[in-house]
């Protein structure tokens, strides 16, 4: 579903990505772990078609994100660190607006409300302006959009950063539910513990390179932490 093929991204003399390759199949969660500036967000932006790689290709469902960005975006949903929504509109209105932008045809109020409910948003919050929402509630609207859009792939850029543990756990539950429904998920995160819990595969990135690719089910949290620290210190 999501395929990074020898991605190289250079900003002048600086090489932000260096020959990064991986694949995320439907029903899998690929977690990218790494320090700030490791190239995680750059990788996600390449899949969105926001950036053009120096060489290599970012493909979604066999389509190049750079050559056919609109078709790719139809299949994706991007959830950044904070889902920025229009504060003047309610959660329901924001979902309706973005669903329209996403080209979703079936936007009946019942379906939109079901999606918000499935994403874990309290019913009484549907009609409240987003300006009054917490960060966790905004993230849930983002997940509701993924449900409504029936996105085949999710790109999550540090989505639980800044969330309290309860909200973070709820969010990861939602991600797992999406995974189980067959969505391919690429998630950049700093949370080793949650990554090991939800991921199918874990990629350790450092200085633009994908140093290791690990099977999440075959590694303990302690081993993951040691490997992570080892990779980071080795490169430094």
């Amino acid at each position: 579903m999501l395929s990074a093929k020898s991605l190289v991204m250079e900003h002048g003399a600086h090489r932000a990505l260096d020959d990064v390759s991986f694949e995320v199949r439907p029903g899998e969660i690929f977690c990218l772990l790494g320090a700030n500036g490791a190239g995680k967000s750059t990788t996600i932006k390449l899949f969105l078609g926001f950036l053009k790689p120096t060489s290599g290709a970012a493909e979604v469902d066999g389509l190049s994100a750079q050559q056919r960005p609109q078709e790719v975006r139809r299949r994706l949903l991007y959830i950044p660190e904070t889902v920025a929504l229009y504060d003047e509109l309610t959660g329901y209105e924001n979902l309706d607006y973005f669903a329209r932008l996403a080209g979703v045809e079936e936007r009946s109020p019942a379906r939109l409300k079901d999606a918000l409910r499935s994403a874990g948003l309290a019913t009484d919050a549907f009609g409240r302006r987003v300006g009054l929402y917490s960060k966790g509630m905004r993230q849930k609207v983002g997940i509701a959009l993924a449900i409504v859009k029936e996105a085949r792939a999710l790109l999550l850029d540090e989505p639980t950063s800044g969330l309290d543990p309860t909200a973070s756990a709820e969010f990861h539950e939602l991600i797992v539910r999406q995974r189980d429904s067959g969505t391919a998920i690429l998630m950049a995160t700093h949370d080793l513990f949650r990554a090991r819990e939800v991921a199918t595969t874990i990629g350790l990135m450092q200085a633009g390179r994908l140093r290791r690719t690990l099977d999440a089910s075959a590694i303990t949290a302690n081993d993951l932490e040691n490997l992570y620290l080892e990779e980071m210190s080795r490169s430094a």
Binding site: L48, R73, R74, Y78, Y86, L101, A102, G142, L155
Partner: peptide, 9 residues
Amino acid sequence: IAALVLSQP
């Protein structure tokens, strides 16, 4: 918001 908007088709 622009990032979320532009990530739509």
